[in-house]
Amino acid sequence: MRNKIVATVAAAGVGAALLASPAVAAEQPPVAPSVAGAAKVASVLKPGQGLKPGHYLRSHNRKYVLAMQTDGNLVLYKGKTPLWASNTGRHKGAFALMQTDGNLVVYKGRTPLWASNTGGQRGAFLAVQDDSNLVIYKGRTALWSRYMYVGALPSGMLLKGGQYVRSPNSKYRLVMQTDGNLVLYTGKSTALWSTVTGRHPGAFVIMQTDGNLVVYKGRTALWSSRTQGKGAFLAVQNDGNVVIYKGHKALWSRHG
């Protein structure tokens, strides 16, 4: 099986579409975000606050910076090293908004480009932590982090070892393990399905822009969904099924 690696990103992004659109915004976006005076150097983005192009958040220990770049990409850095990105570059003038409904969204004008898919959690806020993590909290409950996608793995995005896609109801996790196996779990340790690609440390999985979900070790394909459909995405559903969709059409599922 020969598959071309496409749309590999320097830093894995986080969640977009649940079942259709590439980003989900649960409330009307403003024309531009309201940014508190200290927001560009604080470690927290509160409900209703945003980051305009060129503004940033910084961890308390000053080691990590979340920058809303002028090219439209929202990027977490350690020094000059990118750790995570929304992969929304080439959208000059885009901004990030921590909506009051709990959803973190990158907008270009009124068009959502990327979302954390954490809407329905009023009062949630974004924190840039001293441990290099980027987390959305509701109180003390973590709703999202830079290591996870919520609901779906969008077209062109990948999971490295230790990253995962979580179902919206938090009952299921599709984990790219550090041993190279892609595994669906329920609870803490009950495995429901896997690609059986263990013993390949360093492997990753990518939802290619051609619609094929592939587990790679370097440039060698270890497993593939054998699907085609430009813009297709992978969904981890509340019923425990893992499905590749092209729009609303199912191309593949773990149940065959």
Rank of each mutant, 00 (worst) to 15 (best):
M68C: 00
T227F: 06
L174N: 11
L153S: 02
A221W: 01
G247E: 11
V128M: 14
F233L: 15
G187Q: 05
L192I: 08
L18E: 11
G89Q: 07
V31G: 11
N103E: 09
W252T: 02
G120V: 01
K188C: 01
Q129V: 02
S167W: 13
A232Q: 06
R146E: 05
Y147S: 13
F204M: 07
T227M: 06
V236F: 13
T209W: 08
F95R: 01
P47R: 09
V35H: 09
L159W: 08
L57C: 00
K46A: 07
V35Y: 06
N3I: 10
L222E: 08
R226Q: 12
G256K: 13
Y172N: 04
P82Y: 04
W114E: 00
L158V: 02
V196P: 02
A7I: 00
E27Y: 04
K138A: 10
P154D: 15
M207S: 00
Q177R: 14
G187F: 02
G162K: 06
K188S: 11
L51H: 05
S167T: 10
G13D: 14
A127M: 08
G119E: 04
R199C: 06
A38W: 14
D71E: 07
N61C: 03
I5G: 00
K52T: 09
A235L: 10
V135E: 04
P53N: 12
G162R: 05
H91A: 15
T81N: 09
G123V: 09
T227K: 08
T195C: 07
A7L: 08
T197W: 10
N87S: 01
K80Q: 15
L251A: 08
P53R: 07
I5A: 05
L234I: 12
G15Q: 11
V6C: 10
L182W: 00
K63C: 02
S86M: 00
L222H: 04
Y245P: 09
A16F: 10
K217T: 14
G139T: 08
V44Y: 11
R2A: 07
R146M: 06
G72R: 11
L76M: 05
W193K: 12
R58M: 12
Y147M: 13
L182E: 00
G123A: 12
T209A: 09
T111V: 15
A232G: 10
Q49E: 15
V196I: 05
Q237K: 15
S225L: 12
Y64R: 03
G198H: 08
L126I: 06
Y147R: 10
Y107S: 04
A42I: 01
N241L: 09
A67E: 09
N117K: 06
L97K: 03
V150F: 08
S155M: 07
W84S: 00
L134H: 03
A39N: 07
A152N: 08
A16L: 13
W84F: 09
V242T: 07
G156S: 06
Q99M: 02
G93F: 06
N212Y: 03
V236A: 11
M68D: 03
G15H: 01
L76W: 03
L83Q: 14
T111W: 14
N61M: 07
H60W: 11
G37Y: 11
M148T: 03
Y172P: 04
M176T: 12
G109N: 13
T8R: 14
W84N: 01
N212I: 03
